[in-house]
Structure formats: C-alpha cells, structure tokens
C-alpha cells in the first residue's frame, strides 16, 4: 500500500499498521453486526468506509475507538489495544448539529478537544500552567487557521452554519496532533460546495499533516479522487481494496442491492451514479437483521 512518513509522530514505526483487525467479530445487543473481518490500515492512508445503513460502519469506528469491545478476534490501533491510544486519535462522531441555544463559542469546543479530559481548572497566576495555556492558545489558533475557522470561532457554536460547525469539529479532532482521525460521516448534511470544501480540507490534512484518515461516507464522490483505499461494509462482513477494485458498477450494485453505475470521466476520475441509500432497501435490511 501507499506508505507515507508520519510527520505527527516519527516514533510510530512505519512497519506497524495504524489500525488492524484480525478475524474480528462485532455484536450489538446480541446481534452480530459483522464477523470474520480482516483489515489493515497503513500510516498516512486516506481510507473511506462505505456501505448501506445498518451494516456496521459506525460500529467499526466504535471498535477502533475502544468504545465497543470485539465479540471475537483481535484489534490493534496504533500498535496497542483499542482504547489505550485514544489520546492519539481524533474522533468526529456521526452527528446532529449543535443546539442553536448552546451558548459556548466554537473556539471553546475546539479547546475542549485539547484539554477537555484534564482534571482541575486552570488557575491564573501559576507560572507553569500559564506557560502551558500559552502553548494551548497557540495550538488552538493554529488549527483554527488550518481549517479556515478563525473568522467565526468566537461566535456561539450553535449559531454558525453546518459547514462551519463541521470545520470546527475537524479542528477539534485535529488539535491534539492525532496519528489517526476517525471521521463518521463528516460530509453528511452539507450542501455540495461545502462537501467539496470539507473533503478537500480533510484530504489536505491527510497529505500535509501525515495523519491517517478513516472516513465513513454515504457518498464517496467528493473524496474519491484522493482516496487510497475503500473499505466496504455489508452483508455481515467487510472487505478493503483500492478505489479501482471496489468502486465498480457490479460490486457497488451488489453491495447496496440497487443498480449503481460507475462512470469514468475524461480525466480518469470515477463518478458514482445511482441511489446507494434507497430508503426501501434500508428498511428491508433492518427488518431482516432485527
């Protein structure tokens, strides 16, 4: 696979995969979501996780975060069992937007990504703490600039647009210089220009900051050109491949159970046409499994 140096942490040996599942089985409430999954994500890769609703994409993310223990098999993240490396993972959950009445600034939300899990409150006047606060301030400013959110970071987070919130949340996930970012449908509920802009931002973070990115997506079109690999989750399992292996009309049609066409544009880009999330199909799925 495509190996890149990991700028964020040079000690992370390039030989060790960023995330690894071996014969893994996950179950939720006694129901097996997927089983027998083997998956390796190498450092610096940009990986998309696709598949129908209810197939277990978010479950995969939760397993890697250590929030859901595997029912069988083995998982390692950044060379350690899931959950032990959580301070080096940036996570953007599948989300609702913030409540419009939430009276906390965007910059505060980003800052909580940096120090929200620390005990105690910072007291002014203590030299060491003040120095660390200065560093923290600089880091928060830096990521806000990186995602282009400086202009609205001082406004209450519930009052900025969905695209702006998503940028703030990416900044929050990025603020601790993670080695791995797990993004659960970051492009959902964004309009097309915002989808393209946020997708470009994520792929530039992956490339320039050397962060491994795993992104759960319904629609891979906005990120297709920069993807290294695609993991598709469906039918109780998961398989990984390069975009050209997986993004094919026959495979996607089988995966979603609805006709999907993959076209190649004149400059060699792939474009997916069809309705990967046909509502009727999803209802069927949940009924079969539930």
């Amino acid at each position: 696979m495509n190996l890149r140096s990991v700028a964020a942490d040079p000690t992370a040996a390039t030989t060790a995969p960023t995330a690894e599942l071996v014969d893994a089985t996950a179950s939720l409430g006694g129901r097996t979501v997927w089983s027998g999954v083997n998956l390796t994500v190498e450092p610096g890769e940009f990986v998309a996780v696709i598949g129908p609703n209810g197939a277990g994409k978010s479950t995969l993310v939760k397993v890697l975060l250590g929030l859901l223990p595997l029912a069988g098999g083995e998982a390692r993240v950044l060379g350690r069992p899931p959950g032990e490396a959580s301070d080096r993972i940036g996570y953007l959950p599948q989300r609702r937007s913030f409540d419009p009445g939430l009276r906390v600034r965007g910059v505060d939300v980003v800052r909580l990504g940096l120090d929200g899990d620390r005990w105690g409150v910072p007291l002014p006047g203590l030299g060491r703490i003040r120095r660390r606060r200065g560093e923290d301030d600089r880091r928060v400013d830096e990521v806000l600039r990186l995602v282009g959110a400086t202009g609205y970071a001082q406004r209450p987070v519930g009052r900025v647009s969905g695209g702006e919130q998503q940028r703030l949340l990416i900044a929050q996930a990025l603020v601790r210089r993670p080695a791995l970012m797990l993004l659960d449908e970051p492009l959902d509920s964004l309009d097309l220009p915002n989808q393209a802009a946020v997708a470009a931002l994520i792929s530039s973070i992956c490339r320039d900051q050397g962060v491994t990115v795993m992104l759960v997506a319904h629609d891979v079109n906005p990120i297709l050109s920069s993807l290294d690999r695609v993991v598709y989750v469906a039918g109780g399992g998961a398989v990984a491949g390069t975009p050209h292996d997986v993004i094919r009309s026959d495979i996607l049609s089988r995966l979603y159970g609805t006709p999907i066409e993959v076209l190649t544009t004149s400059d060699g880009r792939l474009v997916i046409v069809g309705h990967p999330e046909a509502p009727a199909r999803n209802c069927d799925r949940h009924r079969q499994q539930g």
Binding site: L65, L67, G83, S86, D87, I89, Y91, L92, P93, R95, L102, V104, D108, V109, L112, G113, D115, G116, D117, R118, W119, G120, V121, Q172, A173
Partner: peptide, 22 residues
C-alpha cells in the same frame, strides 16, 4: 474545581468526550 472541565466537555460534546476517556 476538580471535574468542572471534564463536565463541560461531557455536556457540550458527550460522544467525543467519551471517546477521549472522559
């Protein structure tokens, strides 16, 4: 004074806070 910041994190952003071990 001890847990206020974690409580703020857990209140504003429970999913991310949980993933961070809060």
């Amino acid at each position: 004074a001890i847990g206020g910041r974690q409580l703020l994190f857990a209140s504003v952003d429970p999913d991310v806070a949980e993933a961070r071990g809060v």
